[in-house]
Amino acid sequence: MSGIALSRLAQERKAWRKDHPFGFVAVPTKNPDGTMNLMNWECAIPGKKGTPWEGGLFKLRMLFKDDYPSSPPKCKFEPPLFHPNVYPSGTVCLSILEEDKDWRPAITIKQILLGIQELLNEPNIQDPAQAEAYTIYCQNRVEYEKRVRAQAKKFAPS
């Protein structure tokens, strides 16, 4: 494992614990031996107030490669969400998460999670990743928002 990646992720964890947006979660997972795995984080993004996503808490896994922060983490909703920019596998399609697009090593975990929260309610229809959600979003916004509200209710924190 890269010392650069681990040191950056340790800084990220410290900064997150000191200050993070209300309702968001970002925690490194534990290895079988109980030690912390900084390369694999369990996160959760709350649906934004005043949107059909409100009330939901959407679980996301963030996986970092050894060359982080040169390369972005892979962000994957578990379980996958109904959304035009979420692949059926759950992987998020967002330009700041793509090395050859808008990724920059200075982007923080907090910025990534806030960017994904923004994307939930403002899909990028130029870059669809899920045919069904994309089609319904474009053709029947009322039905799309109904499905999103049902999903938010399903993923409401207990």
Rank of each mutant, 00 (worst) to 15 (best):
S95I: 00
Q11V: 13
A44N: 08
L94Y: 04
F77Y: 03
R149M: 09
L120H: 00
G3S: 04
K48W: 01
H20F: 04
E99H: 07
D19I: 04
L9V: 00
I125L: 10
S2M: 04
N37K: 13
A5D: 05
E78F: 04
P32W: 12
N121G: 08
A150W: 09
D100H: 14
W16Q: 04
L81T: 04
P80N: 13
T108I: 15
A131C: 13
P72V: 05
L9C: 09
Q139A: 10
L114I: 11
S70C: 13
T135A: 12
Q151Y: 08
F155A: 07
Q139I: 08
A156C: 10
I96D: 11
K101P: 08
F24P: 00
P105Y: 03
Y87G: 04
R147C: 11
A5F: 09
N124Y: 09
L63V: 14
A133L: 07
W103E: 00
W16I: 03
T35E: 00
L94V: 15
C75H: 04
K110H: 09
F58P: 06
C75S: 12
F64W: 06
W41Y: 02
G55P: 10
L81N: 00
I112W: 04
P84H: 00
I109Y: 03
W16A: 05
N124L: 00
K110D: 07
W41V: 05
S70H: 07
S89N: 06
P28C: 01
P28S: 05
V86P: 02
A152F: 07
A129H: 04
D66P: 12
D100C: 04
Q151V: 02
I125Q: 07
P46L: 08
L9E: 07
A131F: 03
K76V: 13
L120P: 02
P28E: 03
I125D: 05
K18S: 09
V142D: 14
R17Y: 00
H20L: 03
A26N: 04
L81C: 05
N85V: 06
T108L: 15
P157K: 15
Y137Q: 06
Q11E: 11
D66R: 02
P88D: 15
N85M: 10
S95Q: 03
K101N: 15
L57R: 11
E132K: 07
Y137V: 00
G50M: 01
K74I: 15
Q11Y: 13
L63E: 15
Q11S: 11
E78L: 10
K65G: 11
P105T: 07
K49N: 13
M62Q: 04
G115T: 00
D66F: 09
P123L: 01
L6Y: 15
P79A: 15
K146L: 10
Y87D: 01
Q130R: 10
L119I: 05
L38Y: 13
N124K: 01
P21G: 04
S71M: 06
G47S: 01
G34M: 08
V27L: 12
E99D: 15
Y134H: 05
L97A: 11
A152R: 01
W53D: 04
E99V: 11
E118P: 05
C138K: 13
F155N: 15
H20P: 00
V148R: 02
W103I: 03
R17N: 02
R149F: 09
P128Q: 02
E122F: 11
P72N: 13
K14M: 05
S7V: 11
G23Q: 00
M1T: 00
F58R: 04
D127L: 01
I107L: 14
A5P: 08
G23W: 07
C75I: 15
Q151W: 02
E54P: 01
L9F: 00
R61T: 13
N140R: 10
I112G: 06
R13Q: 07
K14I: 09
Y87L: 03
L60H: 05
N31H: 11
K74V: 15
T91V: 15
H83S: 02
W41G: 01
V142A: 11
L120F: 06
Q126P: 04
N85R: 04
A156T: 11
L6R: 05
T51K: 06
K154P: 01
A133C: 09
N37W: 09
P105Q: 03
Q11A: 15
A150P: 09
P46A: 09
F155T: 05
R13S: 02
Q126S: 13
N140K: 07
F58M: 07
P52K: 11
